[in-house]
Computed example of a mutant assay.
Amino acid sequence: MKTVAAISLFILTGIVTALWFGFDLSEATDSLNYDDEQEGIEDKVVIKFSHVVAENTPKGRAARRFASLIHERTDGDIKVEIYSNGTLYNDQNEYDALKNGHIQMIAPATSKLTERFPKWQVLDLPFAFPNYQAVEEAYEGTIGRTLLDQLEPNVKGMTFWYNGYKQMTSSDQPMILPSDFNRTHVRIMPSPVIESQFHALGASTTQMPFNKTYNNLEVDFINGQENTLSNIYSKNLYKEQDYLTISDHGYLGYVVLMNDEFWSKLSNEHQAIITQALEETTDWIKRHSIEINDTHLRQIKRTASLDVHYLTKKQRVLWKEAVTPVYEETEPIVGESLMQEIYRLQEKYQ
């Protein structure tokens, strides 16, 4: 019994010693250190902004500028997380992701909405806008308001962003005359008007996500594509092409969309800050998109061996004549009022 008692005493002594020397019981009674990073964490608002182009393009730079303005004016209460280059969603599934609330903000090319909302095809008409002033009046006037009204529930149209006129590239021959499009296989965005335009010129087409364009040029599945100079340069498309035609045959712009359920839950103060930041960013991209595209053209000329051709007035007339049937096909789809507005802008700025 003495042995058992001695062992029990030894174990008890060890436990008491461990508690006394091995643990600082004062720490257990003190309050936890304050973590200021956790302050108001439930009040933070996160906007996931997904887009598919490079960060050094007009849209990429505008997205970063918008995010910076929001951070500055909300003291970090709203954080805009930007996912560029299609890292989160590509241009085929970003709209559904927005509508279902998986992301809060996207800025797709207007052409990407034409299959869902046919009236949006009016913006894809070839040679629709004679100059940048015509584009601005279309986006900020009757055409823009009409198109934003077409959007479905839970998708809120915020503004239009600018990029630039589209140009043609090819690996087989320079695209100068309409006949040069014969036997050319061109990558296009999913727009019936764009498809009709290239068919009218004699080319075959394939619709594919923007971020798959380079690989398909590389393996010669396609041998031509249309895009702005900023996209041609930033995605290295020019490295797989031999000819560049400055054609200005169509305009590529974006519409900034937000999940409406997310928007409606924001405070009035936050809504006002976002609206103001978008207005300032839209003004910035309107002024700087031309400069960015011009800079990228100069960089292409310095670093590539492309044959660059500028359409003459006579060649432009031939292109316009070739695509005239596209206007006739499109009017019953977009409606007479929108077509008349296009004709008005053309007459005003021609």
Rank of each mutant, 00 (worst) to 15 (best):
H270Q: 11
E37S: 14
N131P: 01
S170T: 04
K166D: 05
D91W: 02
G144T: 12
L229M: 04
N215H: 15
W284H: 07
I176D: 04
G14M: 11
Y233A: 11
E152F: 03
S289R: 09
V186A: 06
T295R: 13
M175S: 05
G253P: 06
D77M: 05
I143R: 00
Y233S: 12
N90H: 14
D35G: 01
W319H: 07
Y139M: 14
S264E: 14
H296G: 00
Q133Y: 08
L257K: 02
E94L: 14
I41D: 02
Y214V: 05
Y95R: 02
S50V: 11
M1R: 14
I300F: 01
I47Q: 09
Q207R: 12
T159E: 14
M258G: 07
L12S: 12
R116K: 07
N182I: 12
V326T: 04
Y327I: 06
A97T: 07
N90I: 11
L32V: 14
I194S: 01
K348M: 06
R187F: 12
F21P: 06
P174N: 04
L217T: 01
H71A: 15
P118F: 04
R298G: 01
T13W: 06
A97P: 00
A128M: 02
E331I: 14
I11K: 07
T114F: 08
N56W: 12
A322S: 04
N56M: 14
F129T: 00
N163P: 02
K48T: 10
M208A: 14
L12E: 13
I70K: 06
I292N: 00
F221C: 05
N100Y: 08
E42C: 08
I106R: 03
R116G: 05
